[in-house]
Design a protein around this nucleic acid. Structure first.
Lengths: 205, 205
DNA sequence: TGTAATAAACAACAGGGTGTTCATTATTAT
DNA sequence: ATAATAATGAACACCCTGTTGTTTATTACA
């Protein structure tokens, strides 16, 4: 557990580091960033950075951790009812509203999310998010979306398909400026997932 | 244009460099690799590396270029007939065999592909492949899969959905050892794409 | 097979980022 | 006001980079 009451200076420092990180990802990509870049941009002594983080990867991981924690909370809150709704009567209202909440969350954190999920962002985060999706859909919990019973294809691939597709749509949304509302994005995602890409393309009646 | 008839020594050198690259990606991830790592592993003088490539990113790009060229060729050869078949009678045999060819190609190059598409691979390649998929599905060519006419959702998102889903399934396949045959993988992908994830999960009649 | 061409090896270089340490200064909490 | 502590600044050895010039080994070809 972290100290409940951190010094004001610590808060300032960490905030400016993170702000600099996002800026620099957008400018030159996470790959190309050095600790020196970050501290210069954050107008902070390099030694101060090392007082808080081991290196830029550690910094990245810490930031990601918070996001993943939020995502977990959001999922724990909403996911069970989604599964229940689908089991009982295959109605898609509950998955829809869950997706709305997801996009609302992404919208709030769009600065960080766009940078880190973008083409010059951080692969390890994208991997992590993908894994989270996969496990949520297919994980060992009995309450997953993918149930071995009536599958037409192996569950691992169905989960990979859906998980990466969702992330792909999120990336496209963030990359193109996040113009659509969370409601519209949820409509798009559920339409494709429920009816299938071919149907959504107008190729199937 | 490159010299048609390169020195034997050049061939050997480049080959050992690429072999080392793949090994090292698997061991420590592309991020963590240094030029020194590569040359030590390839048992090559560091200066020799710089005679062929600017840096590790240049090396990576050159490798990726060849793959992308193959993918383009494969697509040019098969894609038009896929689109035609879908337009005429919505039969899915042609997309199926195209997908088989794709997985056959991936299988041949699985060493490199697994490394570079893996969780510690190269984000820039994954981005590039995603873009290729997106443009193939939605690009400005009139013969794309996604046609503005009967769309239920914006084309950019449908293309992002399908493109990333395909890549996700490929990654899952490579990551889990490539056990399924290209035919089986094509069946899986077309089943989900044509009927939709919900149907493939057994949630829809 | 001998020879000219050239790739690879070797060595040395300045330059820059890393991660650490320690003394000094500034800010915070109380 | 003061004790605690975070941030600064400077210095350090270390490692990797990218380049250059010289020497050695291999290759292509006549």
């Amino acid at each position: 557990m972290r100290n409940i009451n951190p010094d004001l200076r610590v808060i300032r420092t960490k905030e400016s580091i993170r702000y600099a990180l996002v800026e620099l990802i957008n400018e030159k990509g996470f790959d190309a960033i050095t600790v020196k870049d970050i501290t210069t941009r954050a107008r902070i002594n390099r030694g101060t950075f090392y007082a808080h983080y081991q290196d830029k990867f550690d910094l990245m991981t810490r930031c990601e951790e918070e996001i993943m924690l939020d995502m977990s909370r959001l999922t724990k809150q909403n996911y069970p009812s989604v599964i229940a709704a689908l089991e009982i009567d295959s109605q898609t209202l509950t998955p829809f509203s869950f997706t709305v909440s997801l996009f609302e969350y992404l919208q709030i954190n769009s600065g960080f999310m766009k940078a880190v999920l973008g083409p010059r962002g951080d692969l390890s985060f994208q991997t992590r998010l993908k894994k989270f999706m996969w496990e949520t859909l297919y994980g060992n919990n009995p309450n997953a979306f993918v149930k071995e019973e009536n599958l037409l294809v192996p569950g691992q691939y169905l989960a990979a398909y859906m998980g990466t597709a969702i992330i792909g749509v999120i990336q496209q949304w963030l990359e193109s400026g996040g113009k659509e509302s969370p409601q519209e994005m949820a409509r798009i995602l559920t339409t494709i997932s429920v009816n299938g890409p071919f149907f959504a393309a107008g190729l199937k009646k």
